[in-house]
Amino acid sequence: MTATHRPLVEVKDLHVRFRGERNVHAVNGVDFALDRGEVLGILGESGSGKSVTLKALLRLLPEKRTVISGQIRVGNEDVLALEPEALADFRGKTASMIFQEPMLALDPVYTIGWQIAEAVERHEKCGRDAARQRALEMLERVRIPSPARRLDAYPHEMSGGMRQRAMIALALACKPQVLLADEPTTALDATVQIQILLLLRELQRELGMAAIFVTHDIGVAVEVSDRIAVMYAGRIVETGKVADIVRRPSHPYTRGLLASTVHGAMRGKRLDAIPGAPPSLNEAPSGCSFAPRCKEVLPECSQSLPQAVTVSPAHLSRCVRSTPVTA
């Protein structure tokens, strides 16, 4: 370990393009860093590139159809350079992922206990009994009632919330350093969602993991994150501490998103909706992608990609109107 500060996860100038009948420039220059034990929420609408960014971190995108450039470092691993064997070790052991739909992520033909034990055996090279013991511990940890019995349950025998807990147990079984969560509570009911969010927050603290939480729901991002990165059209347009983003949003898109997020206090008032729809991303953006929908657009917005401006400590915004903090 070096004495200088080195974040656990570092992503530099990440670009992801999907080839096919049409090109889709899904991610267009994403940079971020994540420290040990830190939780980053990536907030964005559908097509903003938030899930693609997350999947790139585990190299889960279909290799033949995707062109990835840039740098991804997790721990000591250069993720984009990993050989297949090393990549398999990396997934699940260094970084692991939970998904929106546990029914699709869990294998329907094996029991929960078998699937967890399998992962533990593979990564920790331990015996079957020890692995099963770990599986039981994990089910207790995620607070599945009567865990010993649930070890032998199949995914379809569990309710939605229980399945999501089982998937968390599977993801955390090998004590990864980073947990990647892709809309883990979107498919759940409100009363179950809050339980899962609290559980994830607690486990993250206990295990000292770093986590990246992708969501479209500002409320969810606020509940779990230390920092929030707001994505639009494949770029992070604003990033900062949760309080900065929610109370002092700088980028017009973040402000628009907050203004159009409905809550009770808005009753009877007209919602300040962002007009229009997100761009199609068939071509790489050459200026600010939000300019066509922006109420404060300037002529220079579409001329070049806006640079990140530090608007307050650790709070960056990519907008030509943002004024840098006077140090």
Partner: peptide, 25 residues
């Protein structure tokens, strides 16, 4: 009441600390 308190708070200083009800429907 449980449904209402299960709503995310939107306030980083007043995060939900306890789930209003346990278990699934």
């Amino acid at each position: 009441r449980a449904l209402l308190s299960a709503m995310p708070s939107m306030d980083p200083d007043r995060r939900t600390q306890e789930a209003p009800i346990a278990g699934d429907p």
